[in-house]
Design a protein around this nucleic acid. Structure first.
Length: 270
DNA sequence: CGCACCCCCTGCCGGC
DNA sequence: TGCCGGCAGGGGGTGC
């Protein structure tokens, strides 16, 4: 599921609900999430106030009033939702946080690839990585051009490497490369400045539209209030193998790159 | 450095 | 109908 637009949508849907709230109680029902949940997770959260929400790459950050940060990564199937106290228990509800207004903030994750942790504010960089956020001002054509120099890897692999660019996953890389008319398998080092200019603009545009439509709900994704997104209806290539290109009607091709499916139009993309 | 493979886990879908 | 293999938006590790 969740790439930058989905995490951003969760952040936006929860920001007003959580800012100023206090954590009353934490019920940790499953510690076997990615990396394992630390023993003191609940203790570091209980009694703390939540000051504000933010996003870094695919991480959701909730700043606490002691300077620490609750960090949530949704993995593939994670959902972080707020609901009335009357919400019944569901399968895969791994963390249930009771807030001071009685509502429940719940982390549900069928596959348990997600991660929750409380970390010191100064450890954020180490925990979340330092890749440039593609919506940040620092993500310029020059910056991307620099990242690609002397890189023999594919442009798709490079863009999905969270240590370099933080937030893009399989859906939005494929969509952005289609918009920029660049094939996923192109060697990063062979991109020209003009390619990087188009690619930065395409990434920004695709992400902005996706956020506007509330993200892509392929199957599991929901925002913080439980609502599905709609951007999957606007996909041009992702999960459209053998279907006609929306621009030229050529069948969309599916191909494996480093174990992940790539989708592209062999006519529009070069 | 780059990549081909593993792993982690559940759920769903299509084929037989 | 039921079973089984393959695949899925995530990341991490190893060995070549």
């Amino acid at each position: 599921m969740p790439e930058l637009p989905e995490v951003e949508t969760v952040v936006r849907s929860l920001a007003g609900e959580l800012a100023g709230r206090r954590v009353v109680r934490v019920l940790l029902r499953e510690r076997r999430l990615r990396g394992g949940v630390a023993r003191d997770f609940s203790k570091r959260l209980e009694g703390r106030g939540i000051t504000r929400l933010a996003r870094r790459g695919k991480y959701l950050l909730a700043w606490l009033d002691d300077g620490a940060v609750l960090l949530v990564h949704l993995g593939m199937t994670g959902q972080l939702t707020i609901a009335p106290a009357s919400r019944p228990d569901r399968v895969h509800d791994h963390v249930v946080i009771t807030l001071d207004d009685g509502r429940l903030l719940t982390f549900n994750d069928a596959r348990r690839f997600g991660r929750v942790a409380v970390v010191g504010g100064d450890a954020l960089g180490v925990e979340t990585g330092e890749g440039v956020d593609p919506l940040a001002d620092a993500f310029t054509p020059d910056a991307l051009f620099g990242l690609t120099r002397r890189r023999r890897t594919s442009v798709k692999s490079l863009l999905m490497d969270q240590r370099r660019v933080a937030g893009l996953g399989n859906i939005y890389v494929n969509e952005a490369l289609f918009h920029a008319a660049i094939r996923p398998g192109r060697r990063a080092g062979r991109l020209g400045r003009d390619d990087c200019e188009r690619l930065v603009a395409s990434i920004r545009l695709v992400l902005a539209e996706a956020i506007q439509r509330g993200g892509s709900s392929i199957s599991d994704y929901r925002d913080g209030l439980g609502r599905a997104g709609e951007f999957q209806l606007s996909h041009h290539v992702y999960d459209r193998a053998r279907q006609p290109c929306r621009r030229c009607a050529t069948p969309i091709r599916k191909q494996l790159h480093a174990g992940r499916s790539s989708f592209y139009c062999p006519s529009c993309q070069r």
